[in-house]
Design a binder for these strands. Structure first.
Lengths: 215, 215
DNA sequence: CACCCGCTTGACCGTCGGGTCAAGGCGACG
DNA sequence: CGTCGCCTTGACCCGACGGTCAAGCGGGTG
């Protein structure tokens, strides 16, 4: 038993252990994103992974923590993909488009996984108040937001984007990516991924910097 | 017990009964949108409404059905607000903006209620497959989509919006409204509602019809 | 071979919460 | 005043599911 109230009881894992843990994460990802967090039983995950129920609790303290770990790992991957796609030399507006398009592609490539960020959106559903997971989630969403806000500010400074609350622009950018993600997944949208990415990229560019003829 | 497999067991309600039912719906709306569907117990709703638990089942067959009824009524209200805001004489693009702005305002005025549509977005969370509620929800989202698609088509026919899959444009429009709704609710966005509505309206206009200088 | 330790099992437990039900009030109507 | 049917109550039921645990396995090390 873990007497310390500290962060977490660290366990040492063998090669095989790490692999097994990943299997569980993979199985959970598929199930969570297809049936939702609440409708996925621990038993389901175990069945999918072909192991006994107790084993989950060897690798994860709770179901919530398992979920949190998934989200963390997703976020890491996504941010890596974004960073890789953004040309550090380019102007901020271009960087936003690159990041946006990369996100769309990434999301399409990892539909099952990425659905989690959708669930994340309805955090309320999970965080019955004061849940530690709620913090992880909320904190994480902000990362993207502040990122985009910074880019928008830079763009405004360079006259690429009209004045206005950068926060608002950021919400728009992030929201549209999330929306198309959602639509692509459970939606009637069957378009080529690259095509979609280009569309979303264009959409964001116009929304940020476009000009309408008249009101 | 309801022997018929038919639609539903109709109950006759007195004046008072209808009122009581509405009280329950109101209480449920507040709780669902603040704590989420899964985290709201039937008992909570009853406590909030100041009635005994059994009473819920006098007015609603199940918790899910109670939720579905809320969603239905929300949707009705929203559509009314949209319809009222759209000038039937105006061009489709303008109508889209009017509908968009009306949605934002409506959503702000009914934050508590409107949060439900957010939950709706994460239907997966609720619909453990084959749930009747899933159908209600899915079917309903399509209403907006086809509406917007039609408007976009009209706009394209008039050369107001460039060619391209209208479905994609529609997803963008609906998504952005939903995103700002979400951000306004649990977010750090504290802006004037009308200001926000105007921003979103402008955003959508630019995204639909705007022109970027160069790629 | 003996021992340790990471790993695996599946029966079991406790709680939580949706849904039921028998009983009773209360107003309307004959 | 009787009775009918809408409404209200709260104790109770029970299945579901997250989490526990005692037991056992197997490979690596001394």
């Amino acid at each position: 038993m873990n007497t310390s109230t500290g962060p977490a009881e660290r366990r040492t894992h063998t090669e095989q252990g790490i692999e097994r843990k990943q299997q569980l994460l993979d199985a959970a990802a598929v199930l969570f994103s297809s049936k939702g967090y609440a409708n996925t039983r621990i038993a389901d995950i175990c069945a999918a992974a072909g192991v006994a129920k107790g084993l989950v609790y060897w690798y994860f303290p709770t179901k919530e923590e398992l979920f949190a770990e998934l989200v963390r790992s997703m976020r890491l991957q996504l941010r890596r993909a974004q960073a890789a796609a953004m040309d550090p030399e380019a102007d901020p507006l271009t960087r936003i488009r690159q990041g946006t398009e990369a996100s769309v592609v990434f999301m399409a490539e990892h539909r099952a996984y990425f659905a989690l960020l959708d669930v994340e959106r309805s955090q309320d559903e999970l965080s019955g108040r004061g849940s530690d997971v709620a913090d992880v989630l909320r904190e994480g969403s902000d990362v993207y937001a502040t990122d985009v806000v910074r880019l928008v500010r830079d763009a405004q400074r360079q006259g690429l984007v009209p004045d206005g609350d950068p926060q608002l622009y950021a919400v728009g950018v992030l929201g549209v990516v999330s929306s198309f993600s959602h639509a692509l997944r459970n939606g009637s949208l069957d378009v080529d991924v690259d095509e979609l990415a280009a569309f979303v990229g264009g959409w964001v560019m116009r929304a940020l910097a476009g000009e309408t003829v008249a009101r």
